[in-house]
């Protein structure tokens, strides 16, 4: 196989087709992994907003006692605070433009670490919200179902209770990790593969 001949033919090739028009510059949707993750995060943002709005009505729907209502308000405020903080971070990520004119390795590493950082932030928010939910559930059982709770606790050993707490944490961790991987992992995997390919000597 003569690569010089191939090069000559390659350079002589002049693809047909009309000129690129201004219409092509008006396309909004880009398809880099960062754009895909950003689009998904945008969707999640709206789901989360809907969820927070719905949470505001839960005390009216369920009818908590005065004491539990106080706990719920506190939980709700903390959830809103954390969510706002993380959404601000996601917004910065969303607005942070990328520079495709860097060399490929730098460019791909930028994508990789930017994606990784934001997936970690996403996981952190999920953990926090999950633990707040578990905390509120515990408070609910203590306040509203104290007698049942005491009865259960009297029958169970401390080791068993601790083991259950540990398993709960593990389940929350596993669901968060799996969800993040399922939702965003494939993009990270593809980009990592390119980084490895470039670094392989």
């Amino acid at each position: 196989m003569n690569f010089d001949d191939l090069k000559n033919e390659w350079n002589a090739e002049n693809p047909k087709g009309n000129n690129i028009s201004t219409d092509m510059l008006k396309i909004k949707q880009a398809h880099t992994p960062i754009d895909k993750i950003r689009a998904k995060m945008k969707h999640e943002f709206f789901y989360q907003l809907f969820f927070l709005a719905f949470m505001a009505f839960i005390p009216y729907i369920v009818g908590f006692s005065a004491a539990l209502n106080q706990v719920y308000l506190m939980t709700y405020a903390i959830t809103c605070g954390f969510t706002a903080y993380y959404f601000f971070k996601f917004y910065v990520f969303y607005k942070n433009s990328y520079d495709l004119s860097m060399d490929s390795r730098k460019n791909i590493l930028w994508f990789y670490y930017e994606m990784k950082l934001n997936i970690e932030l996403y996981k952190a928010l999920t953990y926090i919200v999950a633990f707040i939910a578990v905390g509120f559930l515990s408070a609910y059982l203590f306040i509203e179902r104290a007698s049942v709770f005491v009865r259960i606790f009297s029958k169970l050993s401390s080791v068993y209770i601790l083991l259950n707490c540990f398993i709960t944490i593990l389940i929350i961790g596993a669901i968060t990790e799996l969800w993040a991987w399922f939702y965003y992992g494939k993009y990270l995997k593809q980009v990592k593969k390119i980084v490895d390919e470039l670094d392989y000597e």
Binding site: T32, K36, L100, M102, S104, N107, V191, I194
Partner: peptide, 17 residues
Amino acid sequence: TWMYRVCLNTALIYFKK
């Protein structure tokens, strides 16, 4: 030179629709 980089970087990380 600039065009090669942007084109290649886009193709490297492009995700099919």
